[in-house]
Amino acid sequence: MKKKPTIGIFKFTGCAGCQLELLHLEDVFINLLDIVDITYWVMVKRENTEGPWDISLVEGGISTPEEIEEIKEIRKKSKILVAFGDCAVNGCIPSIRNWIPQMEAEQCVYSDTSSIHSTKILGIGEYVKVDMVLKGCPPHRENIIEVIKSSLLNIRPRLRQHPVCMECKLKDNACLIISKNLPCMGPVTSAGCGAICPSLNRICEGCYGPMSNPNTSALADVFRKMGYSEEDIKRKFRKYAGMTPEFRKEAGD
């Protein structure tokens, strides 16, 4: 039988939630293992092999000099390197600390900071070439499967960069901004989640990061009209994707 393509799953600075999402593939996980061989997954497997891998899913942002070296090693051993989830894409929630002076942030957590030498938290793309990007905190299971399938077929995955509003409207939801006067990030946020939050009457928090060509300044103006302060608005844009050039404008320096 033909050897199955190999997958390695790695974690840097993040919460492991993206890996958990992989485990949540429960009902199709067995079928997935029919077509790929997961040879490295420390969170799940006792025995792991050190590559090379056809597909590497890398979770987490890069926050220390050691991690920079490690991600470069993984890159060398991977045919297709996937930034798996927002942290790996642009730093995500951990990157909020990029707005706080380094020492101050370290002192919040560690009593002895002498052994800590962290860098700014950045997506893995800052250090290595990334072949595919799986946005989301965490990415939706359908998107994960789409990336694996298209990697195997060697085609571009269908991961559309349009706003959450598209998916929200296709679900026949009323717009939360106009019907409830809530500060929803949907109009500037990339879809892929299936508009889970707005479908449950919760605003979009922006966890997929910026859509293609977002009009962030107009949405910030919408929030201002609702009465939100400049600080509130900065926080909203900073939360998941403040390091992206698109949201940076509203996230402040």
């Binding site: 079928n31 077509i35 706003p163 598209m166 409207k169 717009c175 060509n213 977002p214 107009a218």
Partner: peptide, 28 residues
Amino acid sequence: PCLSCGQCSLVCPTCYCYDVYDTLDLSL
């Protein structure tokens, strides 16, 4: 100014534009 969120066209009763794509199950 417009957000390009696309809502107007999705709720429009005469907007018909569509996209076409293929999906495969995990057997490929």
